Computed example of a mutant assay.
Amino acid sequence: MKFASVFVVLATVAATQARILYARQANSQSFTGALGGIAATPVVDSGDAKRPFQVKGDTFVNEAAALQRSCDQQFNACANAANAGAADFSSADCQDQKTQCDAAN
């Protein structure tokens, strides 16, 4: 019986931790435009109460700054693809998309 009790407690803790991890990884970036399949970088919870927003390993104090970085990173990747000739869109199209990304946030 003692083994069963320990198992139930461990299973409960594991389920709780899984919910916390899932909630922490929710993406705050609502912009869904993606020229050439290049999406805006996800904005997730860093787990640090002082710098709670994270974009590709960089942390931010406020969500607005993190969302701005997300849009900037999407623009850079998009423009790199356009300038390399690897896409059927121009860097001007990428700038238009960045404007839309910024406006969505």
Score class of each variant (00 low, 15 high):
residue 34 A to I: 04
residue 76 N to C: 00
residue 79 A to Y: 08
residue 104 A to L: 02
residue 26 A to R: 14
residue 101 C to Y: 06
residue 83 N to H: 05
residue 11 A to R: 01
residue 65 A to C: 00
residue 73 Q to D: 15
residue 51 R to L: 15
residue 32 T to G: 03
residue 8 V to E: 04
residue 16 T to H: 02
residue 48 D to E: 03
residue 99 T to Q: 13
residue 68 Q to I: 00
residue 48 D to A: 02
residue 66 A to S: 08
residue 93 D to L: 03
residue 99 T to G: 12
residue 80 N to M: 08
residue 76 N to K: 13
residue 94 C to K: 03
residue 28 S to A: 14
residue 80 N to G: 13
residue 5 S to M: 11
residue 20 I to K: 02
residue 32 T to W: 01
residue 78 C to Y: 06
residue 73 Q to W: 10
residue 49 A to G: 04
residue 52 P to R: 07
residue 89 F to S: 07
residue 33 G to D: 12
residue 65 A to N: 07
residue 45 D to F: 09
residue 105 N to Q: 15
residue 62 N to D: 15
residue 62 N to C: 04
residue 80 N to C: 01
residue 27 N to A: 05
residue 39 A to V: 06
residue 62 N to P: 01
residue 34 A to T: 02
residue 23 A to D: 14
residue 65 A to M: 02
residue 51 R to P: 00
residue 65 A to R: 00
residue 36 G to V: 03
residue 60 F to S: 05
residue 56 K to W: 03
residue 14 A to W: 05
residue 61 V to C: 00
residue 31 F to A: 03
residue 100 Q to W: 00
residue 9 V to L: 15
residue 16 T to G: 15
residue 2 K to M: 10
residue 102 D to S: 11
residue 84 A to R: 12
residue 9 V to P: 02
residue 23 A to E: 12
residue 19 R to V: 12
residue 66 A to W: 11
residue 69 R to C: 01
residue 41 T to I: 01
residue 52 P to D: 04
residue 2 K to T: 11
residue 3 F to I: 09
residue 23 A to W: 12
residue 42 P to M: 08
residue 16 T to Q: 05
residue 68 Q to W: 01
residue 83 N to P: 00
residue 66 A to I: 06
residue 31 F to Q: 04
residue 90 S to I: 07
residue 26 A to L: 13
residue 75 F to N: 08
residue 50 K to T: 14
residue 102 D to R: 09
residue 87 A to E: 11
residue 33 G to Y: 02
residue 4 A to I: 11
residue 92 A to I: 13
residue 12 T to L: 15
residue 15 A to V: 06
residue 67 L to I: 04
residue 68 Q to A: 06
residue 54 Q to P: 02
residue 55 V to E: 08
residue 65 A to V: 01
residue 16 T to R: 05
residue 31 F to S: 03
